[in-house]
Amino acid sequence: MTHPATDTPPNPLRKFDITGDEIDRVVGVFYARIRTHPTLGPVFAAHIGDWPSHEAKIAGFWRNAILREGSYNGNPMRVHVSTPEIQASHFPMWLDLFCEVLNAELPAEIAVRWDALARRIGEGFRMGVVSMRQPKDAPPTLF
């Protein structure tokens, strides 16, 4: 069976049926919304000077996570932990906004599956931010 948008066989390792173009579109719409978000917009704007390059990099992240393209090279955990303006409280806002975009841009089944993946990844980043920033002798934060 071929994928209708590309007329090539889908990668059997992909997590769900979506095209690279659809991923690119979702990422673009999401970052357009981020730029106007009252809390998240300023955090992103302080660190992203070239939005098209950032969007391409993040689209590569999602293409790798979903389509297994090997199209991303980076360490997103290190970036999130080492950026003090990024707070654990930002992740639920980020994920809720991302979910809104997914639901607006994609069929429901694909939106639900991508949202579940994003929430697992986002929770990992949130936990990394919390644990890496706490004092070394402090007990772990389990929230």
Rank of each mutant, 00 (worst) to 15 (best):
T141R: 10
L67P: 05
P4W: 11
T36C: 06
P135M: 13
R63M: 03
N73L: 07
P135S: 13
Y72H: 10
H54V: 07
V27E: 03
G28C: 03
K136H: 10
N75F: 08
M93R: 11
L40K: 08
P4F: 11
D17S: 15
W114E: 06
P107L: 02
T39M: 04
M127N: 14
P4E: 12
T36Y: 03
A59K: 03
I86N: 04
V101K: 03
R120F: 03
V43G: 09
E22I: 01
A104P: 01
K15F: 12
L117F: 05
S82G: 06
Q87Y: 04
H37K: 05
R63F: 04
I66G: 01
V29K: 05
A45K: 11
R78H: 05
L97F: 10
V130I: 15
E109W: 04
F61L: 09
M1H: 07
I58G: 03
R126W: 09
V81A: 04
D17F: 04
K15P: 00
P76I: 06
E105T: 06
A138R: 15
R25N: 02
P139M: 08
L40N: 04
A111W: 00
P10S: 04
R35Y: 04
E123R: 15
H54N: 11
L142G: 00
K15E: 10
N75H: 12
C99Q: 14
C99N: 13
P107A: 09
E109G: 09
L142Q: 13
P12S: 14
R78C: 03
R133V: 11
A45F: 01
D115M: 03
G41R: 02
T83H: 02
A32Y: 01
L117A: 13
G20R: 04
D96S: 13
A46P: 01
E22M: 06
P92I: 13
P139I: 02
Q134G: 04
P140H: 13
G74S: 06
G124A: 14
P12D: 14
T19I: 01
S131L: 15
G60Q: 08
H90K: 14
F44V: 05
Q134F: 02
P92Q: 12
T141N: 08
P9E: 11
P76C: 09
F30E: 08
R126Q: 15
G20W: 06
L142H: 14
K57D: 08
M93T: 11
A65Y: 07
F98V: 03
N64S: 09
R35P: 00
V81Q: 07
T141I: 15
N73D: 12
D96R: 14
P38Q: 08
A46S: 15
H47Q: 06
D115Q: 13
E22L: 01
P10Q: 10
A108C: 05
T36S: 11
